[in-house]
Amino acid sequence: MIAKVGDSTSILKTQHYLIEKNPKRVDWEHPQHLASTDREFVIDQMREVAKNSQTDEPIYHYSISWDTSDNPTRQQMIQAGTQTLQDLGLGEHQAVLVAHNDHDYKHLHVMVNRVHPVKGTAWNRYRDYIKLEQSLRVIERQHGWKEVPGHHHQLEGQQEPEYGNSLNKFECAQIKKGETPLYMLIREHAEHDFREAKSWEDLHQRLAEKGLTIQRGSRGRGGKVTDGYEYTNLSKIRRDFSMGRLEKRFGPFRSLQELQQGKQLTDIQHAFACFERAHRLGRRRKARSFKKGLGKTLKALGTARKVQAAISSLLSVSTSSNPALKLAGMMGKTIINQIEQEHQRSRGRGR
């Protein structure tokens, strides 16, 4: 289980994000020391209590995410949310628990009023991360859920996780917006490629089919993966996929470009390789330029048979599932049709 604390301290803004921004993703709501989860009722009641304090930040918001291998029931999620509130010292405060259904894993949001309903004092969030992690570790073991030791607290026998396995600010913001961070997407859609690949070239081609590229780290150490827009560390996807462990399997790292440069490529294959790489890395202007160059090179072949043979030869530097190869194939078909039409017109004029 992982807990993340949100930035919003406003009743209205937090309520809007959790429920009104995208009502379809709301699975269920549960009130704590409130008679209802009705929007206006919650806002009015929390505002009324917040008036008893001088704080201008009445809301504390955090989320709890379970591993995909866990499948807690609604009641277990409510119990976990209630227990974390108790362990934080917020057990007597007004709160709303909201479960979202927009991810493959179960996750729960907790919106709680920092102001005590009787004492009128605002809860101090000092050492909140430590308290949250202590609470989650106990809950995990009670239910037999996957244990995820935190940076701030580990149970006996647990090791502190590597820094790369925690969410950064950008990834936290993505999750708050209902988006999925890149490393989670890669883990979901390409983990089997990392495990089944037999060589660097095999892995590169498998990932290229999904628009992904492995690169060396910025300081020449480690490795990262990009979809042309975002980057994530290899080790963040899985520790087994760190650059060091991949090099033990495949030998010293070589990029797809380096592997292709070691081959005797024809002009067509070289033109396609440049287009494919620019397309995969999201370099749109270069991709358009290389695509035009590839088109001109194909047209210069002159006959439909040569164009078809050239397109087939691209499989030696790509795979049939590669999106760039599919685009090149469509381009080749268009050129073949143009050549055949011109040939028919020439025969008609000859008569």
Rank of each mutant, 00 (worst) to 15 (best):
G81Y: 03
P72Q: 02
D102C: 10
R283V: 06
N113W: 07
L34M: 07
G228T: 00
I78A: 04
H100F: 06
F241V: 04
D240F: 02
M184Q: 12
Y231R: 12
E179N: 15
Q142R: 12
G282Y: 07
F250C: 00
G282D: 09
L298W: 05
T213C: 10
S36H: 06
T73V: 04
K119W: 04
Q154F: 01
T37C: 13
A310L: 03
R74V: 01
K326L: 15
G217M: 13
T226F: 07
R285H: 05
Q158G: 10
L256Y: 15
L108V: 14
Q205C: 09
K306A: 13
K263A: 01
E179L: 14
V98R: 07
G150A: 13
Y229Q: 08
E160S: 11
E201L: 14
K169Y: 06
L185K: 13
H116G: 10
R283F: 06
G150K: 02
L185C: 02
Q54C: 04
Q257G: 04
V138W: 02
Q15L: 10
G91E: 04
A273S: 15
Q83I: 00
E188P: 01
I214Q: 06
H343I: 01
P181G: 09
V49N: 06
G144Y: 08
T297H: 02
G332H: 03
G6P: 01
E92G: 01
S316F: 03
L185F: 03
N322S: 06
Q174A: 14
G282T: 06
G89C: 06
T84H: 11
Q205L: 15
S8M: 05
I43C: 12
K4Q: 13
Q134A: 06
R238G: 01
E140I: 07
Q264E: 13
C274H: 03
S199M: 12
M330K: 14
H152G: 06
V26R: 08
